[in-house]
């Protein structure tokens, strides 16, 4: 568990980060909390000759809620998300999800930016951000641009972010209605066997809007527009839920691992989504 030799940088400004990325190209990686990257380096599965630590870079921290918009700096930790009263009120699904990520020690270091940028299908935040319709801010040599979370993920560890760009913030509209982040895992610290993020807005007896995303059931998070649409306009009776579940099943593509065979994961996905919908609806 000893990484290959690497140079360590700890710049204070984004310009310096970008300069290092420009200089070293794909030999350089930025690091936020390090809870994905460092184990990969120790296993020598990732070789990073130039490691750029973002923790001293200005402008990457802070949680702001204003004007119906929530913005999380990339270096906001899971622990900060859990502790934020403002966020608990504005978007309680974040706290519910963050509490199911790893353990308190990891959450003290693990960041929202690292979680969404790494492109690991096991991470919980990417699916959550797709559910919330979040936008990711990327800063690169050409300046700043925004990419929708729903367009960001291409394959496992492959994202829209270019090698010379840094993900600096996550932003989304204050979600409305009921919510649930439901996750089945084998133990603390584990990735999901299946997880579902659900937001539902209710008007009267029926569902006015819904958003559904699944985690660790494909090589990217799966935002299932069809599953959500199956709920909209209904009173969430058994048929509507069945339709949502069927739509979701058509879009996931789990693979076998130590968490179980594909057949089991597909079944777990159904159970987890049903529970998430029920809980979100009960809160809507």
């Amino acid at each position: 568990m000893i990484p290959a030799p690497f140079e360590y940088y700890r710049p204070r400004e984004m310009a310096a980060v970008l300069a290092l990325l420009a200089e070293h190209g794909d030999e350089a990686r930025v690091m936020a909390g390090g809870h994905s990257l460092i184990p990969m380096m120790k296993l020598r599965m990732a070789e990073v000759p130039h490691l750029i630590d973002l923790q001293d870079v200005e402008g990457l921290s802070g949680i702001t809620v204003s004007g119906g918009e929530i913005r999380l700096g990339a270096m906001v930790t899971q622990a900060e998300i859990i502790d934020s009263k403002e966020l608990a009120q504005a978007a309680p699904i974040l706290r519910e999800a963050a509490l199911q990520i790893a353990d308190p020690q990891v959450r003290a270091m693990g960041t929202v930016g690292g979680n969404v940028a790494n492109g690991d299908p096991g991470n919980d935040m990417p699916g959550l951000m797709q559910c919330l319709g979040a936008r990711f801010t990327l800063v690169g040599p050409e300046g700043e641009r925004e990419v929708a979370a729903r367009d960001f993920y291409e394959a496992a560890y492959m994202t829209e972010r270019d090698d010379d760009e840094v993900l600096t913030a996550v932003a989304f509209a204050v979600p409305e209605g009921g919510y649930a982040y439901e996750k089945q895992k084998r133990k603390i610290g584990d990735y999901a066997t299946a997880a579902a993020a659900v937001q539902i807005r209710r008007e009267g007896a029926s569902c006015a809007a819904a958003s559904i995303a699944m985690t660790n059931l494909s090589d990217t998070p799966v935002w299932s527009e069809a599953a959500a649409e199956a709920l909209v306009g209904t009173e969430l009776g058994p048929e509507a839920i069945e339709a949502a579940v069927t739509a979701m099943l058509a879009e996931i593509d789990p693979s076998e691992d130590n968490r179980g065979p594909v057949e089991f994961k597909r079944h777990a996905a159904v159970v987890i989504l049903r529970r998430a919908i029920a809980r979100a609806w009960s809160r809507a």
């Binding site: 084998r186 179980g260 089991f264 079944h267 777990a268």
Partner: peptide
Amino acid sequence: DHWRIWKTANRLGLH
């Protein structure tokens, strides 16, 4: 573990 228990339930027709 979860999947083996699930498989047992499945084999017994409990799903």
